[in-house]
């Protein structure tokens, strides 16, 4: 595994490296936290706490390890502690219709060409987002790590602190639950 030069520089005390890392990971980390806690204000607070924790712990981080997994593990631990403290029930229970963090412009991808394509694609993503937001935390988490952060199963297992086989079965169950939720909302596969 290649050693991340910015991480090495940060360990040596280079503040510019910290700025580089925050800029590089800002979207991924914020998205991950938002998928877990579902509330933008809480995700923002956890985003800041995660970077403060990075500063605190960076000296003890082995630069030869995977920084992505380490960063997301720190974020996850903080998010879970937060949820346990604020809304312990939210760790297991789904919360329907709570996906308010995106506006319509966010949902439209540049890969969709015609206005009709735009509208249909936006609609599909809204449906998927809402169905995903209704899943329990561990399923939302594994979906975002696999599909949005494009982590390998081994990395997901590392972040979530479970064996690879558990991460795999969790991913399968999350997909099954997502599909069930979509089919319940849109019988006959009309969401497609």
């Amino acid at each position: 595994m290649a050693v991340d030069a910015d991480v090495v520089r940060l360990r040596r005390g280079d503040l510019n490296a910290l700025s580089e890392l925050i800029t590089r990971y800002q979207n991924r980390l914020y998205r991950y936290l938002l998928r877990i806690v579902r509330q933008p204000a809480e995700a923002e607070d956890l985003f800041q706490q995660t970077w403060l924790r990075v500063v605190e712990k960076i000296r003890s981080f082995d630069a030869n390890r995977n920084f992505d997994a380490w960063l997301f593990t720190l974020a996850r631990n903080l998010a879970i502690d937060h949820l346990r403290r604020i809304r312990p029930e939210s760790l297991d229970e789904p919360l329907a219709n709570s996906w308010h963090s995106e506006n319509v412009a966010d949902r439209i991808s540049s890969k969709d060409h015609t206005p009709l394509d735009h509208a249909l694609a936006a609609e599909r993503r809204t449906e998927i987002s809402e169905a995903m937001a209704g899943l329990p935390m561990i399923y939302r988490e594994v979906l975002t790590l696999r599909f949005e952060d494009e982590m390998k199963i081994e990395e997901i297992a590392q972040v979530t602190a479970v064996p690879v086989s558990t991460a795999k079965s969790r991913l399968r169950r999350s997909l099954e639950q997502l599909r069930d939720a979509l089919e319940a909302r849109y019988p006959g596969g009309t969401w497609q």
């Binding site: 979207n27 998205r31 998927i128 979906l143 997909l175 997502l178």
Partner: peptide, 20 residues
């Protein structure tokens, strides 16, 4: 496949520049 495909194309919520 469409489920996986749409999951990969979900929009990324951006943190505000103030937050960063």
């Amino acid at each position: 496949r469409p489920i996986a495909s749409e999951l990969r194309r979900l929009p990324t919520p951006q943190p505000s520049s103030w937050l960063v």
